[in-house]
Design a protein around this nucleic acid. Structure first.
Length: 509
RNA sequence: GCUGCUAUAGUGUAGUCCGGCCAAUCAUGUCGGCCUUUCACGCCGACGACUGGGGUUCGAAUCCCCAUAGCAGCACCA
């Protein structure tokens, strides 16, 4: 009997059920899923407090954008506060420039930041909570050699410093603050669980002494490590949910010890998987090295994955956010594909971009048998109200060398007329061949962009794979800063226009 | 090595918690067609995946075990 039912297809089963017992049939709604929807957050009905907490070591890149966009989307969805927290407690990894560039990049991305916090402003606060932690027996000052401590930790053995009295540890911590120890001589450690299966959790450090590198904003020599400052700040700032990469999973477990010592309730954590990006380095230090070595022009070099590089290419911030939301918060490691970002961007930019003609590697050709006339191509074929531009043909045109050669015997100069193509020696000639578009279609003549001789400006189209030189319409000079579409070539952002001509960056096809 | 996490088409993603409506969703990509004075946009169609092996069950992408692969952490970085 069951086997018989199994053998039926879904439709047949439904039909039988309707015939036998229609009241049992429930139709499940098949709502088309929003591609950008994120899974619901627990305990979020009354709003959330979330944060984006970058280390100010350089401009933001696509990896940061994922964290920034995901947290942003949740704050928008549930309402609440969105804190930008600058985590500058390691002076070795602070680039003073980043205090300006990070907020700039966030502004470009368009996130709903409600407040900005600098951890370097909060050192006294961290010292204060360190004292409280020591008073609760949750931390001790350790003066063991690094190497020695590692061995002990591996053997699940307490180091000698661990047995100290609270008063003594309190005094030793003050000694740290007063400069009584040199760099590396002493650190504050949390009492965790020496039996913890993961050695990373055993009595990890939370404060260190650092005098060899000066902090660009403050005068300090004792710094909290991120697990301490992050836990204290997340608690004090009232963070309810934390979305971060899974490289922080071990940190979450470490921070749990701090929450436990203080008796605080931790926020809800969620860790997404690692994201690789085809063809680019996302490491700030590698990018910095490449710029220093002259391999890249700067932080906005289009071969880089920084937000400013994307902006320079003509990628819209909204496209970046959509691409990140489409990826979501999965724990699987992924390979980010430019194709997906480009598709999001194309959808945004296509209705906005005016169409212009760019003729790469132009050759000038005389056209015989044609009278002067004007072509008036539309600025946007889907939106005729945008108007036209005017190109005056007076007997000669430039076209792309790539269009010629081979079997081509007829071409349609777009919005002008047809020409027959002939070659004498290695020189091409065009001869007027009628206005009728149908003729060109019938002959399978390619419809190509062209420009009148003399009515062009030099144009360099910069692409990750190399520059493409040619000429474009003079009016393109008025589009600096905007994304246009060079017909049959691709979308491009007009970067500059000077006496030397136009420089454009290819956005994508 | 130790401690964890993950595994669905080329890429991203839904479904996995609560096994049957999954001959597996959507997007992107590729190919073909239509539209079009762009190789864009739009429309139509095709292609393409449950890591492998056992087990439980009438029935497994979904539950269990093993294997494999990838990733993360084991810093006085974030």
């Amino acid at each position: 009997m069951i086997a018989e039912v199994d053998a039926l297809g879904h439709d047949a089963r439904t039909a039988r059920l309707v015939a036998l017992a229609p009241e049992l049939l429930e139709v499940r709604e098949a709502e088309p899923r929003d591609r950008y929807a994120l899974p619901p957050l627990p305990d979020a009905e009354n709003g959330v407090v979330m944060r984006f907490a970058p280390n100010p070591s350089g401009p933001l890149h696509l990896g940061h954008a994922r964290a920034a966009a995901l947290n942003d989307a949740y704050v928008r969805q549930y309402g609440g506060r969105y804190i930008l927290r600058i985590e500058d407690t390691d002076p070795k990894r602070v680039d003073p420039e980043a205090y300006r560039s990070v907020p700039e990049d966030m502004a470009w991305l368009g996130t709903a930041i409600t407040e900005t916090v600098y951890q370097s402003d909060r050192l006294e606060l961290y010292y204060d909570y360190a004292r409280r932690l020591i008073e609760r027996g949750g931390a001790y000052v350790c003066t063991c050699e690094n190497e020695r401590f590692r061995e002990l930790r591996q053997a699940k053995t307490a180091c000698p410093c661990r047995a100290g009295e609270v008063e003594e540890d309190l005094a030793r911590f003050e000694k740290m603050l007063d400069g009584g120890y040199v760099e590396g001589e002493a650190s504050l450690r949390v009492r965790t669980d020496l039996e913890a299966p993961d050695p990373a959790l055993r009595d990890f450090p939370v404060f260190r002494i650092l005098t060899s590198t000066l902090h660009p904003r403050i005068d300090a020599s004792v710094y909290p490590l991120m697990n301490f400052s992050v836990a204290v700040d997340d608690h004090l700032l009232g963070c309810t949910h934390v979305i971060r990469g899974k490289d922080h999973i071990a940190n979450t477990r470490r921070q749990q010890f701090i929450y436990d010592w203080f008796g605080w309730t931790p926020p809800h954590f969620r860790h997404y998987g690692r994201m690789g990006i085809e063809g680019v380095v996302l490491s700030t230090s590698e990018m910095r090295a490449g710029i220093a070595a002259g391999r890249y022009e700067g932080w906005d070099d289009i071969r880089l994955g920084t937000l400013r590089a994307l902006a320079r290419r003509g990628i819209e911030p909204e496209a970046v956010k959509r691409a990140m939301l489409a990826i979501g918060v999965g724990e699987t490691d992924i390979q980010f594909s430019w194709e997906n970002l480009f598709a999001e961007n194309r959808a945004i930019v296509d209705p906005l971009a005016d169409r212009f003609w760019f003729v790469p590697e132009q050759v000038a050709i005389e056209v015989s048998g044609a009278l002067p006339r004007e072509a008036r191509p539309l600025r946007h074929p889907g939106l005729p109200s945008r108007g036209t531009r005017t190109l005056a043909f007076e007997g000669g045109v430039v076209v792309s060398a790539a269009e010629l050669g081979g079997e081509v015997s007829m071409l349609r100069l777009k919005d002008l007329f047809n020409v027959d193509v002939s070659a004498v020696e290695d020189r091409f000639q065009f001869a007027y061949a009628g206005d009728d578009l149908a003729d060109a279609r019938e002959a399978h003549a390619p419809i190509i962009q062209w420009l009148p001789i003399g009515e062009t400006v030099p144009c360099t189209l910069r692409r990750p794979e190399g520059d493409l030189d040619g000429v474009c319409e003079p009016v393109v000079r008025e589009a600096v800063g905007r994304v246009v579409q060079f017909e049959r070539v691709g979308f491009a952002r007009i970067d500059s226009a000077g006496p030397g001509g136009v420089v454009a960056y290819l956005t994508h096809r």
